[in-house]
Every structure is written in structure tokens, then in C-alpha cells.
Design a binder for these strands. Structure first.
Lengths: 195, 195
DNA sequence: CTCAGATGGTACTGGTCGGTTCGATCCTGG
DNA sequence: CCAGGATCGAACCGACCAGTACCATCTGAG
């Protein structure tokens, strides 16, 4: 069956489908933990199609990481923006969302940070750095809204807590990592608001 | 020159030398970023010697990670124990040491965490988990000495800060990650001591 | 002095992996 | 109905890599 069974020919959709499916597989197995052949088999796509859309395996990896970063940032942004105006509530919602992620069976740490550890190249590290930057912007917004005297400092501390909780949840398996990071975050927030 | 230039034949020493040199190279290049052939060339060792000592490349990797974990834990333990009895001073010394590490040109994040991201196998993950566990023990000692009502909770939060600072320092390049994590740690410590 | 063991150097192997190519088949716009 | 593009499946290639084998050479103990 040269063309996807019932689906119409639509390169954009094919590409999006590949990216979406590859995101899961590459997160689960690691960037180098699966070859292009097996990857294509999993995705139900021929190698030629994959290479026509992404050029190289690295091309696919970059596309996957870019869209993953987008999805994560949007997910967290939505979580925060739909939890009211109070910074404390926003942080609680954010860390609660993270905790839910940690509790999932497929949790394997932050895909972007992991990717940078695996492919220590400028391109991948740049994607990871940009992801962290956007994460920081989100937290800076909360810190500013809280009226912290040094919102950038507070935001960076919140970022440290969020990333640290992710690492600890991954390697210590503590189901409380998100909750404990949340408590710490609220304590820092309260201190910043008092001054 | 079949035997190392001036050095005596001493398998134990040879093994230790290989582990020491490989630790740096594998940290810098990544576990899969260098082949056995090039690795041996860098170490000034023949492949046969390497395989006689470690069996497989994985064997070398495990030995490297084990000793690296030992070194890091001892380094931090010494840093803490040589900074007096007050928990606040101990934490300050610990995070100051971390900040010094972050500032080094060769800094690439935590080697153990990175390794687990690269080789997502039971063996490597177990080494990383054990490393985190020992890290936590060190911090639990400080938390207990501080008289925290829930030392395990405080220790886990300190661990989150330490690991988070390492990640942020790696991917955000902030020279302040260690300092800001330290401030947050001291705030949590003070709160725990008050109650 | 001699011999066993440790080591270096080199060549080789079997397998895997990224990437290419080709022909056949199926959609879709005109 | 037809032409062009998208896709599949499979074969293929060159490179690289982990691991093995062999031998010459060196060290150190007795």
C-alpha cells in the first residue's frame, strides 16, 4: 500500500503524524536507542518518506524537539493562565501539573534536557537552551505579578525548583518531588512578596 | 613500546589510570560520542588491555560511573564536613563548591544524570539512582543536624535545589545558579529551624 | 639470566546503522 | 480519464564500531 490506507495524500499531515509518533518513540527509547529502520516500522512509514520530509535523522530529531518544546510550554502556559490571578495559585497549579506528569508510567525526565545530554551538539543544545529560556519567561511573568523586588532572581529560583523536581522524580522516584518543590516555591514566593 | 613507557607493570595501576582518563573523555564527549578505538588512542592504551580489564565498553562505562559517583560524593562530603557544625555554613559551602564546578570550562552537567539519559539501561540507571541516594543522605544529615521537624522532606527539597541548579547552570549558563539555589536553601533551612 | 605475565600495535570480522535508489502502487487535481 | 506527485517495500551501499586474535616487546620476580 504505497499511500496510507484510507488517508488522503497530504504531505503536511504526513509530516505532522511522523513528528507526533516519533516524539513518543524517541522519548521512550532515546535519540540513539532506535535506528531509522525500526523507527520507520514503528511509525508505519517508509524510509524514503521520512528522508523526503526531514532530510536526515537529525532533521527529524530537531523537528521533534522543537514541537515538543512548543507543546510543553503551551501546556504549562495554559495551566498557569487558567488558574486565576494569584501567583500562589498559579505556582500550585504548575507544580501539580508537573507532579501529574511525573506520576505517568512513561515519564522519563525532561525530553529536551535529556536530548541535550544525548546529542551534545550546538543545534540540540540551542533547542534545549531556548526551551529553558521560555520556561524562565513563564516563571518571570508569575514573579513579576507577585510584585517581587527582584522578579528575575525569583524566577530563576523557581526554574531551579521545577527542573530539580523533574530530575529527582526521574531518578529518585519520589512521588512527592512535585509537591515538595511546590512548597519550597510557595515559601520563596511568600518571602519575596513580604519584602 | 608494549609496556607503558617508564611505568612498572602494575595491572591495578593500569586499570585505575584507564578509569581516570576515560572519566574525563567520556564526560566531555558523551558515552557514545567516542568509539573504543579513539578512546584507547586518547588513553594511550591498546584495545586488548582495555578489554582485558573491563570486558566490554559497558564494563568500562560502569567502572567510570561508579568511581565518578564516589569522587563526587566524597568531594561534597569533605566540603560539608570541613565547614563547621552550623547547617547554614555547611549548605553555603556546598553550594559554593557547586558554583565553582559550574564555572569551570569543562562543566557539562552531572555526569551521572547525563549518563542515565544516554544509556537508559537498568545498570546505568541503578548507578545514577544510587548516586542520588547518597547525595540525599548527605543532605539528610545536614537537615537532621538543623533539627528540622521533617528532615527527610527538607533534604529532598535541598536535593531538588542542588540538581536543579546543576541543570540550570548547564543550560542557562547562569553563573548565579549555585548562589540562587543557596539562598533558597538557606531560606528553607531557616523556615524549618523556626518551626 | 630467564620466564611468565602485562602491554602495544595492527589487522581482521561480523554486525549495525544512516542514507540512497528503484520500481510499483495509489491518491488527487484537472 | 490522465498525469503528477506521494507513498511503500525492499534491496543496496559505505562507513563505522565493538570485539577478537596474533605477535613482538617489555617488565619484574625468582
Amino acid at each position: 500500500m504505497p499511500v496510507a490506507k484510507g488517508s488522503t495524500i497530504d504531505p503536511e499531515r504526513t509530516r505532522a503524524t511522523i513528528v507526533h509518533a516519533a516524539t513518543q518513540v524517541l522519548y521512550e527509547r532515546g535519540l540513539d536507542g532506535i535506528g531509522v529502520a525500526e523507527l520507520c516500522a514503528r511509525l508505519g512509514v517508509s524510509k524514503e518518506t521520512l528522508y523526503r520530509h526531514f532530510g536526515t535523522k537529525d532533521g527529524l530529531v530537531h523537528a521533534v524537539l522543537d514541537t515538543r518544546s512548543d507543546r510543553v510550554i503551551h501546556w504549562l502556559t495554559d495551566t498557569v493562565s487558567s488558574s486565576g490571578d494569584r501567583p500562589a495559585d498559579q505556582l500550585t497549579a504548575l507544580f501539580r501539573a508537573l507532579q501529574g506528569w511525573y506520576d505517568g508510567r512513561e515519564f522519563r525526565g525532561c525530553a529536551l534536557i535529556n536530548a541535550a545530554a544525548q546529542h551534545h551538539t550546538d543545534a540540540v543544545r540551542a533547542i534545549a537552551a531556548r526551551h529553558v529560556e521560555r520556561y524562565l519567561e513563564l516563571l518571570t511573568g508569575i514573579a513579576k505579578q507577585a510584585g517581587a523586588d527582584d522578579p528575575h532572581r525569583l524566577a530563576l529560583q523557581l526554574l531551579i525548583l521545577a527542573e530539580g523536581a523533574t530530575v529527582v522524580a526521574d531518578h529518585h522516584g519520589s512521588a512527592r518531588a512535585g509537591e515538595l518543590a511546590c512548597r519550597a516555591a510557595l515559601a520563596l514566593l511568600a518571602a519575596a512578596e513580604r519584602s
